[in-house]
Design a protein around this nucleic acid. Sequence first.
RNA 1: GGGCACAUAGCUCAGUUGGUUAGAGCGUCCGCCUCACACGCGGAAGGCCGUGGGUUCAAGUCCUACUGUGCCCACCA
Length: 876
Amino acid sequence: MESRFNYLTAEPLWLEAWSQSGLGRPNRQAGKALFTMVIPPPNITGSLHMGHALDNILPDCLLRLYLMRGSDVLRVPGTDHAGIATQYVVEKNLKIQGIDRNALKREEFENIIKEWAEKTKTGILGQLVKMGCAMDFSRARFTMDETCSRAVRFAFKSLFDARLIYQADRLISWCPRCRSALSDLELEWQTSRGQLHYLKYPMIGGGFITVATTRPETMLGDAAVAVNPKDPRYEKFVGKKILLPLMKREIPVIADRRVESDFGTGAVKVTPAHDPLDWAIGHDHGLPLYSVIGEDGNLTDAAGPYRRLSIKEARKKVLDDLKTQELLEREEPYTHNTAVCYRCATSVEPLVSKQWFLQMAPLRDLAVAAFEKNGQPKFYPEHWGEIYLNWLKNLKDWCLSRQIIWGHRIPVWYCEKCPPICATETPVKCPSCGNAGLKQDPDVLDTWFSSSLWPMSVFGWPQETEDFKRFYPTSLMVTGYDITYLWVARMIMMGLHFTKQVPFAEVYLHGLVRDEKGRKMSKTLGNVIDPQEIQKEYGTDALRYGVLIKSQPGKDTPLNKDIFVGAKNFVTKLWNAGRFLKLEHSKESAKPGPRSQQELLAILDQHAHPSDWWAIGQFNETLAAAQSHLERLDAGGALRKIYDSFWGSFCDWHIEIVKLRRGGCGPAVGLAIYRDFIKILQPFIPFVTHEIAKELGNENSGQEAVLARETWPAPWPRAPKAAEASRLWWRAFSSIVTEMRIIRNDFQINPGQEMIFSAANGEISPEDMSLVEKLTKSKRVNQADGRARVRRTIGSGTWELTVFFDKEWNPAKETARLAGQVGELEKAIARLRDLLEKSDFSSKAPSDVVEKERARLEGLRGRKAKLSDYLTQLGG
RNA sequence: GGGCACAUAGCUCAGUUGGUUAGAGCGUCCGCCUCACACGCGGAAGGCCGUGGGUUCAAGUCCUACUGUGCCCACCA
């Protein structure tokens, strides 16, 4: 074995081996439980970033775990066409080339995006492969491929026929840059500093009413002024008329409960066509709509003399004109929130537009019932269930149509005089009048519409395919909490509506990947870590390890490069431990690897050293802890446990001891435990563990070379007596070794120099004492001679270590150290004594806990006595 | 305005159902190329576990109030 794991050469070979073995593809083995997942399809906007790495590595780890624990597994990969996002990226690229997309025909532009889609799709799927994700790539889907498109058309028509999808003129959020409607969930909010303008509206018949607004240009579309009905200041105005300045339009003063008396002047201008609250008020009061802002973000003909001005220009001109007429009372600085497009950050305009909507209430009720009655799906972390439920209850209708090119065309066709025709296949002629000149609706669907069908459509739904029958609903959905509403909730609702089943039994919501300061990774901040670079520089296992060890359910994952350095170090450590054990074992035995576990246990009964039992015990505890974490889908927690145990116990202690034990079963047992570590680490870092397994040779003949297909280890059987004895042994042994090392450091004894010591009242066998000698480069003597000495108490204080050395040393430092220790011991003793004697502890706490504390107090007292005694000697 | 989460070492974070002296990685300091690994080994310094109450024999852990931080929802013009 080389001294390092060569990931550059090993990774491609294992990727090929896994592909051959069909990891992530079901075997159809009878009697096996199925564990299925579909991936959150990455957007085809570019390459995969660190968030995707987490999104895919975490479930891969769980899938590999399920595979080893005996499940038949399937994970379906795929990509998302990501309507607005992809179109935006392609538009930007065209702009760099000097091409204006508006100059292109719909088909031309669509073809350019298709080309882009092919390229990025390939790249993304390639990245998934290279991250070691065990998926069934033969089942890979794309949200706009024929299978998924069929599902989209079917779902739309079905919802249309059920009258859940409808077309209506509504106030929607409009992105003037994307030239498209957006859903409420596609808005982001920014605080912006602006002005609150106080406008004086003249009453017909004399007097003024003053309104406050942040958007004075919308006054051109005012249909009324509203006041609170309980506001005494305005009682006399209600029902009277205003002559709207600039437009010279008569508008009424109305009373509405939704107006807050204590904001601004207590009177609000009502612009039903450009403000959500005004829309509602206008609707209830039957006010007319004046759409003064158009889809291009400029003012419309309805704005009279202000037509074709941009919003900014119009605002300035309106204010100037009002000022001239002395109708601008005052202005004050004002900070408020404005909505922007979540893809291009352009300010969104509320405006009235004819759009397709999905009525959510019936779907919502299904989801609420599934969760409240059956607890479906189960959320990790659990508290997300309540958040999800709460959100569902306030759900509004979903605006489905987008006025962009890239996406699923709305499957509705129009005939000149007949009602719209909704069909899953392009109709040749109008079913009502037979007219052949049908025109398809130019709009496309919100990209999340196809996403919401994903767990069904990947399996061929609505067709009753074998796959659909067999794999739907899936076992687990792993995704980021940021798309719980946008995606998870909608999948659940669609699943319930169309299949009466929640599409996944469990949902694991992971956090967002952030930098070490907790900031989002972004190109502008320059804090982006590219997973591909990490793979090149540190290896894919290091990428997986780093991402996994930092992940916690529901919490954000802070990452920096150091984590991957540590990750690579662990891979190297693991590798070298294997290299060493293989070497050691080959000295003992000609066989390629350890014998069977049964045979090993027989040898253990005859020849075991306590450290063998201790290491076995440590492994069993690690296995149990890791499993309990994994049952809660906490891969990070499991990995941390394994790391601590492998490095801190197995390598730092057990292997070091095995090195010094001559002959015996040390290497064989060590190798056997090591093999189990390799297995439980396989789901996390599959490349290096597979390579090591190959290097070590097969345990038994007939086993597959693919470690991922081996079975998850069971705890080692061992006698409880041996377990207890090995624990006691460990305490004594480790504390004397540690104390010797501390003395060597404290007294600056050269590492090459042998230390002479005596140990009074040995709890350790002579054989083990020789291990201590070798481990600490020291020699035990029975008799004190005339040399300088230092004494230390060990462990519980029942025995004592004396180290002799030639050089003179100043006792002051040691005295201070001892005095400090005695002081702390006294405090601890007093605390314990009070606990045992003065409180109700002794009578109320369980007897075993009380016994423990009593024993501890005894130990502390013994230790203090010894230290005080020695302190007196030093002082004297 | 409503909701959720978090607050532990200089930094990033563990700490499973309450029970010995609260841990790791990175960073800092000291000493080592010891024949698996310097991507390593040994050691040290560094924490009244955000604050005040409460429950309990016992609280980092449970409850409550407060303070601070982050996020989500709402969007008062």
